[in-house]
Nucleic acid binder design. Structure first.
Lengths: 168, 168
DNA sequence: CTGAATTTTCAAATAAAATTGAAAGTAATC
DNA sequence: GATTACTTTCAATTTTATTTGAAAATTCAG
Protein backbone atom coordinates (compact mmCIF):
# COMPACT_ATOMS: atom_id res chain seq x y z
CA UNK A 1 0.00 0.00 0.00
CA UNK A 2 1.17 3.52 -0.79
CA UNK A 3 1.55 6.21 1.87
CA UNK A 4 -1.24 8.40 0.51
CA UNK A 5 -3.72 5.56 0.46
CA UNK A 6 -2.71 4.50 3.97
CA UNK A 7 -3.04 8.04 5.29
CA UNK A 8 -6.47 8.32 3.73
CA UNK A 9 -7.56 5.08 5.38
CA UNK A 10 -6.10 6.18 8.69
CA UNK A 11 -8.06 9.42 8.51
CA UNK A 12 -11.26 7.53 7.73
CA UNK A 13 -10.72 5.02 10.52
CA UNK A 14 -9.90 7.67 13.11
CA UNK A 15 -12.95 9.64 12.00
CA UNK A 16 -15.18 6.61 12.45
CA UNK A 17 -13.67 5.88 15.84
CA UNK A 18 -14.37 9.42 16.99
CA UNK A 19 -17.84 9.44 15.53
CA UNK A 20 -18.73 6.19 17.32
CA UNK A 21 -17.69 7.74 20.61
CA UNK A 22 -19.53 11.02 20.29
CA UNK A 23 -16.76 13.13 18.76
CA UNK A 24 -17.44 15.15 15.63
CA UNK A 25 -16.17 13.05 12.74
CA UNK A 26 -14.42 15.98 11.07
CA UNK A 27 -12.67 16.95 14.28
CA UNK A 28 -11.29 13.42 14.51
CA UNK A 29 -10.26 13.53 10.86
CA UNK A 30 -8.37 16.78 11.29
CA UNK A 31 -6.70 15.22 14.29
CA UNK A 32 -5.75 12.15 12.25
CA UNK A 33 -4.40 14.28 9.42
CA UNK A 34 -2.15 16.16 11.81
CA UNK A 35 -1.12 12.98 13.63
CA UNK A 36 -0.07 11.53 10.31
CA UNK A 37 1.89 14.57 9.11
CA UNK A 38 5.60 15.09 9.63
CA UNK A 39 5.21 18.86 9.44
CA UNK A 40 2.71 21.33 10.75
CA UNK A 41 -0.10 22.28 8.35
CA UNK A 42 -1.91 25.52 7.57
CA UNK A 43 -5.68 25.94 7.40
CA UNK A 44 -5.37 25.79 3.59
CA UNK A 45 -3.49 22.49 3.78
CA UNK A 46 -6.21 20.99 5.95
CA UNK A 47 -9.01 22.35 3.76
CA UNK A 48 -7.37 20.82 0.69
CA UNK A 49 -6.54 17.48 2.28
CA UNK A 50 -9.99 16.87 3.75
CA UNK A 51 -11.99 18.90 1.20
CA UNK A 52 -13.80 20.92 3.86
CA UNK A 53 -14.64 24.61 4.15
CA UNK A 54 -12.59 27.26 5.87
CA UNK A 55 -15.19 27.71 8.61
CA UNK A 56 -15.32 24.03 9.36
CA UNK A 57 -11.54 23.81 9.42
CA UNK A 58 -11.27 26.74 11.78
CA UNK A 59 -13.90 25.45 14.19
CA UNK A 60 -12.40 22.00 14.44
CA UNK A 61 -8.80 23.14 14.72
CA UNK A 62 -9.83 25.49 17.54
CA UNK A 63 -11.67 22.65 19.27
CA UNK A 64 -8.59 20.44 19.02
CA UNK A 65 -6.48 23.21 20.51
CA UNK A 66 -9.04 23.60 23.33
CA UNK A 67 -8.77 19.88 23.96
CA UNK A 68 -4.99 20.22 24.22
CA UNK A 69 -4.41 17.86 21.31
CA UNK A 70 -3.12 20.33 18.74
CA UNK A 71 -0.63 23.18 18.97
CA UNK A 72 -0.48 26.40 17.03
CA UNK A 73 2.83 27.31 15.44
CA UNK A 74 3.83 30.75 14.20
CA UNK A 75 6.58 30.70 11.61
CA UNK A 76 8.63 33.86 11.70
CA UNK A 77 8.15 36.00 8.65
CA UNK A 78 4.82 34.37 7.91
CA UNK A 79 1.43 35.58 8.88
CA UNK A 80 -0.34 32.30 8.42
CA UNK A 81 -0.82 29.94 11.38
CA UNK A 82 0.37 26.35 11.25
CA UNK A 83 -0.90 23.46 13.32
CA UNK A 84 0.64 20.28 14.62
CA UNK A 85 -0.68 17.43 16.75
CA UNK A 86 0.70 16.09 19.99
CA UNK A 87 2.29 12.81 18.90
CA UNK A 88 2.79 11.08 22.23
CA UNK A 89 -0.20 8.75 22.26
CA UNK A 90 -0.10 8.21 25.99
CA UNK A 91 -0.31 11.96 26.42
CA UNK A 92 -3.09 12.17 23.85
CA UNK A 93 -5.08 9.54 25.70
CA UNK A 94 -4.66 11.25 29.04
CA UNK A 95 -5.66 14.57 27.56
CA UNK A 96 -8.83 13.13 26.03
CA UNK A 97 -9.68 11.34 29.28
CA UNK A 98 -9.15 14.55 31.22
CA UNK A 99 -11.31 16.68 28.96
CA UNK A 100 -14.12 14.17 28.65
CA UNK A 101 -14.19 13.68 32.37
CA UNK A 102 -14.48 17.41 32.89
CA UNK A 103 -17.01 18.06 30.15
CA UNK A 104 -19.15 14.95 30.08
CA UNK A 105 -18.79 12.96 33.27
CA UNK A 106 -18.49 15.45 36.12
CA UNK A 107 -21.65 17.42 35.30
CA UNK A 108 -23.74 14.26 34.98
CA UNK A 109 -22.41 12.73 38.18
CA UNK A 110 -23.13 15.93 40.02
CA UNK A 111 -26.76 15.68 38.89
CA UNK A 112 -26.99 11.99 39.81
CA UNK A 113 -25.65 12.68 43.26
CA UNK A 114 -28.27 15.34 43.90
CA UNK A 115 -30.96 12.82 43.04
CA UNK A 116 -29.94 10.52 45.86
CA UNK A 117 -31.90 12.56 48.42
CA UNK A 118 -35.46 11.81 47.37
CA UNK A 119 -38.14 12.21 49.96
CA UNK A 120 -40.78 9.57 50.48
CA UNK A 121 -42.10 6.57 52.34
CA UNK A 122 -39.30 4.21 53.43
CA UNK A 123 -41.20 1.09 52.42
CA UNK A 124 -42.22 2.31 48.99
CA UNK A 125 -40.75 -0.33 46.68
CA UNK A 126 -40.34 2.05 43.77
CA UNK A 127 -38.42 4.49 45.90
CA UNK A 128 -36.23 1.72 47.28
CA UNK A 129 -35.39 0.44 43.79
CA UNK A 130 -34.56 3.93 42.59
CA UNK A 131 -32.28 4.86 45.47
CA UNK A 132 -30.63 1.46 45.28
CA UNK A 133 -29.84 2.02 41.58
CA UNK A 134 -28.44 5.45 42.34
CA UNK A 135 -26.38 4.05 45.17
CA UNK A 136 -24.92 1.42 42.84
CA UNK A 137 -24.04 4.02 40.24
CA UNK A 138 -22.49 6.23 42.88
CA UNK A 139 -20.32 3.44 44.29
CA UNK A 140 -19.10 2.48 40.86
CA UNK A 141 -18.62 6.03 39.64
CA UNK A 142 -16.55 6.96 42.69
CA UNK A 143 -14.11 4.14 42.14
CA UNK A 144 -13.97 4.67 38.41
CA UNK A 145 -13.53 8.40 38.74
CA UNK A 146 -10.75 8.00 41.24
CA UNK A 147 -8.95 5.51 39.01
CA UNK A 148 -9.38 7.82 36.04
CA UNK A 149 -8.01 10.73 38.01
CA UNK A 150 -4.93 8.73 38.89
CA UNK A 151 -4.54 7.66 35.29
CA UNK A 152 -4.69 11.25 34.10
CA UNK A 153 -1.93 12.30 36.47
CA UNK A 154 0.26 9.29 35.81
CA UNK A 155 3.13 8.94 33.40
CA UNK A 156 3.45 6.11 30.97
CA UNK A 157 5.64 3.95 33.18
CA UNK A 158 2.87 4.01 35.77
CA UNK A 159 0.46 2.72 33.19
CA UNK A 160 2.86 -0.01 32.10
CA UNK A 161 3.49 -0.97 35.70
CA UNK A 162 -0.15 -0.95 36.62
CA UNK A 163 -0.81 -3.01 33.55
CA UNK A 164 1.81 -5.56 34.61
CA UNK A 165 0.53 -5.62 38.18
CA UNK A 166 -2.97 -6.30 37.01
CA UNK A 167 -1.73 -9.07 34.79
CA UNK A 168 -0.87 -11.30 37.68
CA UNK B 1 -37.69 16.27 45.63
CA UNK B 2 -40.44 13.80 44.77
CA UNK B 3 -39.72 10.38 43.27
CA UNK B 4 -41.35 11.14 39.93
CA UNK B 5 -39.35 14.31 39.46
CA UNK B 6 -36.13 12.54 40.45
CA UNK B 7 -36.83 9.68 38.05
CA UNK B 8 -37.47 12.13 35.26
CA UNK B 9 -34.18 13.89 35.94
CA UNK B 10 -32.36 10.59 36.13
CA UNK B 11 -33.75 9.60 32.74
CA UNK B 12 -32.70 12.92 31.24
CA UNK B 13 -29.20 12.73 32.73
CA UNK B 14 -28.66 9.14 31.62
CA UNK B 15 -29.89 10.05 28.15
CA UNK B 16 -27.45 12.94 27.94
CA UNK B 17 -24.61 10.75 29.16
CA UNK B 18 -25.35 8.17 26.48
CA UNK B 19 -25.80 10.77 23.79
CA UNK B 20 -22.42 12.35 24.63
CA UNK B 21 -20.77 8.98 24.24
CA UNK B 22 -22.31 7.97 20.95
CA UNK B 23 -25.30 6.01 22.24
CA UNK B 24 -28.78 6.78 20.96
CA UNK B 25 -30.35 9.09 23.52
CA UNK B 26 -33.65 7.20 23.56
CA UNK B 27 -31.90 3.88 24.07
CA UNK B 28 -30.17 5.33 27.12
CA UNK B 29 -33.47 6.76 28.38
CA UNK B 30 -35.23 3.43 28.08
CA UNK B 31 -32.33 1.91 29.95
CA UNK B 32 -32.62 4.55 32.68
CA UNK B 33 -36.37 4.04 32.97
CA UNK B 34 -35.89 0.31 33.50
CA UNK B 35 -32.96 0.84 35.87
CA UNK B 36 -35.18 3.08 37.96
CA UNK B 37 -38.19 0.74 38.05
CA UNK B 38 -38.85 -1.81 40.75
CA UNK B 39 -40.90 -3.95 38.36
CA UNK B 40 -40.54 -4.98 34.76
CA UNK B 41 -42.37 -2.82 32.23
CA UNK B 42 -44.30 -3.55 29.06
CA UNK B 43 -43.83 -1.77 25.74
CA UNK B 44 -46.96 0.27 26.55
CA UNK B 45 -45.50 1.33 29.89
CA UNK B 46 -42.32 2.52 28.20
CA UNK B 47 -44.21 4.31 25.41
CA UNK B 48 -46.29 6.14 28.00
CA UNK B 49 -43.43 7.01 30.33
CA UNK B 50 -41.13 8.39 27.63
CA UNK B 51 -43.84 9.52 25.19
CA UNK B 52 -42.30 7.67 22.25
CA UNK B 53 -43.81 5.53 19.50
CA UNK B 54 -44.22 1.80 19.52
CA UNK B 55 -41.64 1.35 16.77
CA UNK B 56 -39.06 3.38 18.60
CA UNK B 57 -39.73 1.53 21.83
CA UNK B 58 -39.39 -1.82 20.15
CA UNK B 59 -36.13 -0.94 18.37
CA UNK B 60 -34.46 0.38 21.48
CA UNK B 61 -35.64 -2.38 23.79
CA UNK B 62 -34.31 -4.94 21.28
CA UNK B 63 -30.99 -3.10 21.12
CA UNK B 64 -30.73 -3.12 24.92
CA UNK B 65 -31.43 -6.85 24.94
CA UNK B 66 -28.72 -7.33 22.27
CA UNK B 67 -26.33 -5.41 24.45
CA UNK B 68 -27.13 -7.73 27.36
CA UNK B 69 -28.44 -4.88 29.51
CA UNK B 70 -32.13 -5.74 29.52
CA UNK B 71 -34.00 -9.01 29.97
CA UNK B 72 -37.31 -10.09 28.57
CA UNK B 73 -39.83 -11.52 30.98
CA UNK B 74 -42.88 -13.59 30.09
CA UNK B 75 -45.61 -13.56 32.70
CA UNK B 76 -47.65 -16.74 32.65
CA UNK B 77 -51.18 -16.16 31.49
CA UNK B 78 -50.16 -12.97 29.70
CA UNK B 79 -49.22 -12.55 26.08
CA UNK B 80 -47.49 -9.24 26.53
CA UNK B 81 -43.74 -9.11 27.05
CA UNK B 82 -42.23 -7.32 30.02
CA UNK B 83 -38.72 -5.92 30.30
CA UNK B 84 -36.35 -5.37 33.18
CA UNK B 85 -32.82 -4.02 33.38
CA UNK B 86 -29.75 -5.65 34.85
CA UNK B 87 -29.30 -3.73 38.11
CA UNK B 88 -25.78 -4.73 39.08
CA UNK B 89 -23.85 -1.67 37.90
CA UNK B 90 -20.52 -3.43 37.81
CA UNK B 91 -22.08 -6.02 35.49
CA UNK B 92 -23.67 -3.27 33.41
CA UNK B 93 -20.33 -1.56 33.00
CA UNK B 94 -18.56 -4.75 31.99
CA UNK B 95 -21.27 -5.56 29.50
CA UNK B 96 -21.08 -2.13 27.88
CA UNK B 97 -17.28 -2.33 27.76
CA UNK B 98 -17.47 -5.77 26.19
CA UNK B 99 -19.94 -4.77 23.52
CA UNK B 100 -18.27 -1.52 22.63
CA UNK B 101 -14.92 -3.23 22.38
CA UNK B 102 -16.38 -5.79 20.02
CA UNK B 103 -18.40 -3.38 17.91
CA UNK B 104 -16.35 -0.20 17.86
CA UNK B 105 -12.76 -0.86 18.90
CA UNK B 106 -11.78 -4.21 17.41
CA UNK B 107 -12.77 -3.39 13.81
CA UNK B 108 -10.91 -0.08 13.89
CA UNK B 109 -7.78 -1.53 15.45
CA UNK B 110 -7.76 -4.27 12.83
CA UNK B 111 -7.73 -1.58 10.13
CA UNK B 112 -5.02 0.43 11.88
CA UNK B 113 -2.83 -2.62 12.18
CA UNK B 114 -3.08 -3.34 8.47
CA UNK B 115 -1.89 0.18 7.76
CA UNK B 116 1.40 -0.41 9.53
CA UNK B 117 2.90 -2.12 6.48
CA UNK B 118 3.24 0.80 4.09
CA UNK B 119 5.77 0.49 1.32
CA UNK B 120 8.16 3.31 0.54
CA UNK B 121 11.53 4.91 0.90
CA UNK B 122 13.04 4.38 4.36
CA UNK B 123 14.23 7.97 4.67
CA UNK B 124 11.01 9.60 3.59
CA UNK B 125 10.16 11.83 6.54
CA UNK B 126 6.43 11.69 5.92
CA UNK B 127 6.50 7.91 5.88
CA UNK B 128 8.55 7.80 9.05
CA UNK B 129 6.16 10.14 10.86
CA UNK B 130 3.17 8.09 9.77
CA UNK B 131 4.56 4.71 10.77
CA UNK B 132 5.78 6.17 14.05
CA UNK B 133 2.27 7.43 14.85
CA UNK B 134 0.80 4.05 14.01
CA UNK B 135 3.40 2.32 16.12
CA UNK B 136 2.50 4.57 19.05
CA UNK B 137 -1.18 3.85 18.66
CA UNK B 138 -0.50 0.14 18.40
CA UNK B 139 1.61 0.05 21.55
CA UNK B 140 -0.99 1.93 23.52
CA UNK B 141 -3.95 0.05 22.09
CA UNK B 142 -2.40 -3.32 22.89
CA UNK B 143 -1.94 -2.46 26.53
CA UNK B 144 -5.32 -0.82 26.82
CA UNK B 145 -7.09 -3.65 25.07
CA UNK B 146 -5.46 -6.22 27.28
CA UNK B 147 -6.41 -4.31 30.41
CA UNK B 148 -9.96 -3.95 29.13
CA UNK B 149 -10.17 -7.64 28.40
CA UNK B 150 -9.09 -8.45 31.93
CA UNK B 151 -11.59 -5.95 33.31
CA UNK B 152 -14.42 -7.53 31.34
CA UNK B 153 -13.63 -10.97 32.71
CA UNK B 154 -13.12 -9.79 36.27
CA UNK B 155 -15.58 -9.74 39.13
CA UNK B 156 -16.18 -6.72 41.27
CA UNK B 157 -13.74 -7.70 44.00
CA UNK B 158 -11.01 -7.72 41.37
CA UNK B 159 -11.92 -4.20 40.45
CA UNK B 160 -11.95 -3.07 44.06
CA UNK B 161 -8.63 -4.77 44.69
CA UNK B 162 -7.06 -3.38 41.57
CA UNK B 163 -8.37 -0.01 42.57
CA UNK B 164 -6.79 -0.33 46.00
CA UNK B 165 -3.51 -1.59 44.55
CA UNK B 166 -3.31 1.34 42.19
CA UNK B 167 -4.00 3.73 45.02
CA UNK B 168 -0.67 3.12 46.64
C1' DC C 1 -3.30 55.38 10.47
C1' DT C 2 -4.36 52.27 6.03
C1' DG C 3 -4.91 48.31 3.72
C1' DA C 4 -3.91 43.60 2.80
C1' DA C 5 -3.72 38.99 4.78
C1' DT C 6 -5.76 36.03 7.63
C1' DT C 7 -8.98 34.31 11.14
C1' DT C 8 -13.48 34.11 13.21
C1' DT C 9 -18.41 34.07 13.40
C1' DC C 10 -22.90 32.54 12.56
C1' DA C 11 -27.39 32.42 9.80
C1' DA C 12 -28.80 29.56 6.30
C1' DA C 13 -28.32 25.25 3.89
C1' DT C 14 -27.28 20.49 3.92
C1' DA C 15 -26.59 16.06 5.62
C1' DA C 16 -27.14 12.55 9.01
C1' DA C 17 -29.62 10.39 12.61
C1' DA C 18 -33.69 9.31 14.93
C1' DT C 19 -38.65 8.71 14.97
C1' DT C 20 -43.23 7.71 13.55
C1' DG C 21 -47.03 4.90 12.41
C1' DA C 22 -49.35 1.91 9.66
C1' DA C 23 -48.91 -2.43 7.37
C1' DA C 24 -46.99 -6.92 7.66
C1' DG C 25 -45.62 -10.59 10.46
C1' DT C 26 -46.04 -13.96 14.45
C1' DA C 27 -47.83 -16.63 17.88
C1' DA C 28 -51.17 -18.01 21.28
C1' DT C 29 -56.11 -19.29 21.94
C1' DC C 30 -60.28 -21.16 20.97
C1' DG D 1 -57.74 -22.48 10.74
C1' DA D 2 -59.60 -18.17 12.12
C1' DT D 3 -59.42 -14.62 15.41
C1' DT D 4 -57.13 -11.83 18.48
C1' DA D 5 -53.19 -9.87 20.83
C1' DC D 6 -49.44 -8.64 20.30
C1' DT D 7 -44.41 -7.60 17.94
C1' DT D 8 -41.61 -6.23 14.09
C1' DT D 9 -40.37 -3.73 10.04
C1' DC D 10 -39.29 0.11 7.27
C1' DA D 11 -40.51 4.10 3.95
C1' DA D 12 -41.61 8.59 4.88
C1' DT D 13 -41.10 12.30 7.98
C1' DT D 14 -39.13 14.97 11.52
C1' DT D 15 -35.45 16.37 14.34
C1' DT D 16 -30.78 17.16 15.33
C1' DA D 17 -26.04 17.86 14.04
C1' DT D 18 -22.84 19.43 10.84
C1' DT D 19 -21.17 22.28 7.23
C1' DT D 20 -20.85 26.16 4.27
C1' DG D 21 -19.46 30.63 2.86
C1' DA D 22 -19.71 35.34 2.93
C1' DA D 23 -19.43 39.22 6.08
C1' DA D 24 -17.23 40.96 10.15
C1' DA D 25 -13.36 41.07 12.99
C1' DT D 26 -8.59 40.89 13.84
C1' DT D 27 -3.77 41.29 13.14
C1' DC D 28 0.26 42.72 11.10
C1' DA D 29 3.37 45.49 7.92
C1' DG D 30 4.43 49.61 5.95
Amino acid sequence: MQLDEAKEKFIQAWGTLGSNWGINRTMAQVHALLLASANSLSAEDIMAALRISRGNTNMNVRALIDWGLVYKEIRSGERKEYFSAEKDIWHVFKQIAKERRKRELEPIFRVLNDLRHVEGDADNQELKAFTETLRGIHTFASKADNTLDRLIRADESWFSNAFLKLMK
